[in-house]
Design a protein around this nucleic acid. Structure first.
Lengths: 205, 205
DNA sequence: TTATATACAAACACGAATGTATGTATAGTT
DNA sequence: AACTATACATACATTCGTGTTTGTATATAA
C-alpha cells in the first residue's frame, strides 16, 4: 500500500504537520522525536523524511501555515478603508489578532509552541529573526498609522507617534506572552478586548 | 585530589552553576548535556550529580540565584518611602529592572535562557508557574500603587487603577520579551528609559 | 505497455545522553 | 590514630534519536 496519489501524498503531508503540532505542543520541540510524530500521524519516519529534510523544516512548515494567514487578517483590519480614524484601525487590528488567537486552537497551539516550547538556538535561531521581523514591521506600520492620527489631530495633545507606537508595540507583545504565561491563574482572556480598548483610549484625544 | 574542603566544594558548586548558565545560553537547555556543562566547569559529571539531582535541579538553582535579588531590588524601589507619588515609585521600579538587565550580563543571560532557550514542558513546566507567580504578584502590587495614586488624585481623570495596572503589566512584559526578540535589529535598549517614562506620562494627571 | 519516478516502510549503523554503580583520596570527627 | 562521611572521578549499562540505505508496490508519463 505505497505510492499514493499526489493528493493522498499531500494529505499525509498535512497530517504529519498536524501531528507535529500536537506532539510539539505536548512534549516541546526538542523532546519530540520524529518517530513520535510519525506514529502520531499514523506513518513511519520514512514518510516524514520523505516530506521534510529534518525536524527544523517540519517546524518551519507548521509555523508558516498559521503565520501568513494571521498576518493577512490583521493587516486587512489595519488597512481597512472603512476606518477613517487610524486609531480605530489599530485597535481593530490588535483586537482581531487576539480574537483569532482565542477562537482558533491551531493558531493558539502554534503560538504557544513558539513562545514556550521551543529553544531558539542553532537551526532555530533563524526562527527568532523570522518572528522578530514581523514584530518590527508591526511597529513600523502602527507608527505610520499613529502619524496619520497625529496629522488628523486625533492623538491626544503632547503625544508623539513614535513613542505611542512603541508603547502599543510592547503592550501587544506583552499581552501575547502573558496569555500563555499566566493562562490558568487568571481569566485574562476575557479581559483582553477591554484591555486593548483601554490601551487605545489612553491616547485618543 | 578529591575530598575538597567544604568551602572548595561550595566553590565548585558555584562554578558548575556558572558553567551551566554559559552552556544553557549557548546551546539551549535541552541540548546542554551534563557532560558539556561538567567539562565547561572543569569537572566530571560525577561532580554535577553530586551537587544536583539532575539538569532540572541545576536549572532551578541557576534561576533562583538571579531571580530573588532582582525581585528584592525592584521591590525596594517600588516601596521606597522617598517617593510620595506612587507613579514615581512604579516608574522607578520598572526602570530599575531594565537597568539591572542592561548592566548585569549574568542576569541578562538567565532571562534570555528562560525566555528563548528553554522548553516549558514536563519537569520545566513548573518553571512557568514560578515565573508566572511573580508576574501576577507584580500586577497586584502596581494595581495597589495605582489605587493609591488614584486616591491622591494623581491619576489622569477617567482612568481606573485596575486597567492602567494591566496596561503597565503588559507593557513591561512586552518590553522584556522584545529586548531579547529584536535585540540586534534595533537600538531598543537605549530607548527603554524613555519608553518607560512616556508610558507613565500617559497616565499622569 | 513498459519504464520510471514516487511515496513511503523497514532495516541498519552510529553517536550521544542519562542514571547508576563503583572506586578512592582526604577532610573531619571521635 | 582510626574511622567515616565527603567530594568527587571513572566505568558501565541502557535507552533513545538521528540520518541513511535499501526495499517495494504503484501512480503516472511516454
Amino acid at each position: 500500500m505505497v505510492r499514493k496519489t499526489k493528493e493522498e501524498a499531500e494529505q499525509t503531508r498535512k497530517e504529519i504537520i498536524e501531528a507535529a503540532r500536537n506532539v510539539f505542543h505536548e512534549s516541546g520541540v526538542s523532546r519530540s522525536s520524529l518517530d513520535k510524530i510519525a506514529k502520531a500521524a499514523g506513518v513511519t519516519r520514512g514518510a516524514v523524511y520523505w516530506h521534510f529534510a529534518d525536524k527544523a523544516e517540519l517546524f518551519f512548515a507548521m509555523r508558516e501555515d498559521v503565520f501568513a494567514p494571521m498576518l493577512a487578517r490583521t493587516d486587512a483590519r489595519l488597512y481597512d478603508p472603512a476606518f477613517d480614524n487610524p486609531l480605530d484601525a489599530i485597535e481593530a487590528s490588535i483586537t482581531e489578532f487576539f480574537r483569532v488567537l482565542a477562537e482558533c486552537e491551531v493558531v493558539r497551539e502554534v503560538f504557544e509552541i513558539m513562545i514556550s516550547r521551543c529553544e531558539y538556538v542553532d537551526e532555530f535561531s533563524s526562527v527568532q529573526e523570522e518572528v522578530g521581523r514581523p514584530a518590527l514591521a508591526f511597529l513600523e506600520k502602527i507608527e505610520r498609522m499613529y502619524q496619520q492620527a497625529f496629522d488628523k489631530q486625533l492623538l491626544r495633545p503632547g503625544l508623539l507617534p513614535a513613542m505611542v507606537a512603541r508603547d502599543t508595540w510592547a503592550f501587544t507583545s506583552g499581552l501575547l506572552h502573558l496569555t500563555f504565561g499566566c493562562r490558568k491563574n487568571t481569566g485574562l482572556e476575557q479581559e483582553i478586548p477591554a484591555m486593548i480598548q483601554a490601551h487605545m483610549a489612553l491616547r485618543r484625544r
